[in-house]
Design a protein around this nucleic acid. Structure first.
Lengths: 125, 125
DNA sequence: ATCCAGGAGTAGATTGTCTACGTCTATGAG
DNA sequence: CTCATAGACGTAGACAATCTACTCCTGGAT
């Protein structure tokens, strides 16, 4: 029974993240200090109570995107366990971007909230 | 200077909606009573304080999607001004879907909130 | 006559994410 | 020794949702 799901169903069920929020989440994670990709994934997972599970296939393209935009900078370093890892650090313009991402996010959340919990105002059954 | 924007820039600026939320918003609008496409767009725009501007190129595909899923049903009718319009009505399974969409949305908003306003817990400058 | 607003719709481009891989290194088990 | 596993980085291709940019129709104004 484990293989009875169509590709489409699996796709629909696995979407956990809203498009456009990943960049913001990564930048926020880097506000807590420089971090490498693997670490970012785990920080997001833990801090969100296992809700946000970012796949590496989403993460690395996002990190490269952010670096191209100049919002993060990176360098190779050694981890505690003596393995190579690429550490990312948020830049000044990244911090500005984060502020603007957050205000956009809050604007949208508020707008959606006013739809979802808003007063119908028009008499209905 | 009004034409100096690249297609990409324009695209980036015009995204107002998070992917995956449109279906929920449409279903919620229909909870207030049957409505036609044009009316849904305006209801969302007004109720959100001009924040949510849904394009017809997003709306109609979404409505057809919802109908294929059995979450809404539709029929041609005349508006007050005697024009033809396709009125959509939410179904029982659509209402169930709406409940589940909303709880998913709230789960994600909460998770993202716990990242964005969460305690770093680790001492930083 | 013509133009605009209300109304429904499609085609194509673009993007972000996911799945499913591949690669390398360090470490611990057998 | 060698083999599996976990930590770590990365890419290619599929896919869905959205946006832009149209088309088409009708009913009133001007």
């Amino acid at each position: 029974m484990s293989t009875s799901m169509s590709t489409k169903d699996r796709y629909r069920n696995r979407i956990e993240l809203l498009q456009g929020t990943l960049d913001m989440l990564i930048l926020q994670t880097l506000q807590w200090g420089p971090q490498h990709g693997y670490g970012i994934v785990q920080a997001l997972r833990v801090q969100s109570g296992e809700v946000l599970q970012v796949e590496t296939g989403s993460l690395y393209p996002a990190l490269h995107r952010l670096e191209r935009q100049g919002w993060v900078r990176s360098e190779w370093k050694q981890t505690e366990s003596n393995q190579r890892a690429r550490y990312y650090r948020i830049t000044a313009s990244g911090k500005r971007q984060l502020v603007s991402d957050l205000s956009r996010w809050e604007r949208i959340v508020e707008a959606i909230g006013s739809i979802m919990h808003g007063r119908p105002e028009e008499g209905e059954a």
